[in-house]
Design a protein around this nucleic acid. Structure first.
Lengths: 81, 81
DNA sequence: ATGTGACTTTAAGTCCGTG
DNA sequence: TCACGGACTTAAAGTCACA
């Protein structure tokens, strides 16, 4: 079910934001984006475009591709229990 | 000058497409997107959003984050004059 | 087989609010 | 501090004709 790149992307944003210890509002401010928009993104309800991906990545101090690293969210079902 | 994520993204799409030996038209078909839209993306004139990023990545048989791996395009010579 | 300007439709992104 | 809705403006999606 890889349909939801929006969901995975949002989870990554949230995870990194939380790890930085900042609020959605603070992240929004650092991105120059709207408070409610960040909320939407984290909940996977928005189809974010390239330039905003970059802005968010920059505000989170990570390269954009880190926001697409879903390995820690969607573990490889490799059956390594 | 990391402003141009559109450019870098487009270059990656093109690079991978070429390496697959397919045309823009063929890629467009595999993505379910329009031929001219792919052309625009590769030239960096479009601000592509998440779902189309995923479609393109899928059509190119790479994970989305590969399209954000700019290391081979923007070599790291940290000479930021 | 691709680049490009123009165009219409759809969704991105803003801003007001409430619980 | 955040989820979420409604209404709004701007930009992305998607298509075309022609170079």
């Amino acid at each position: 079910m890889s349909n939801d790149i929006r969901i995975l992307f949002g989870k990554n944003v949230r995870k990194i934001r939380i790890s930085m210890g900042i609020s959605q509002e603070e992240l929004a401010f650092r991105c120059g984006l709207h408070r409610t928009y960040i909320s939407d993104i984290e909940r996977g309800t928005r189809n974010v475009s390239l330039e905003n991906i970059e802005r968010i990545a920059h505000a989170l101090n990570v390269p954009p591709k880190d926001l697409f690293d879903f390995s820690s969210i969607e573990p490889k079902d490799d059956q390594e229990t």
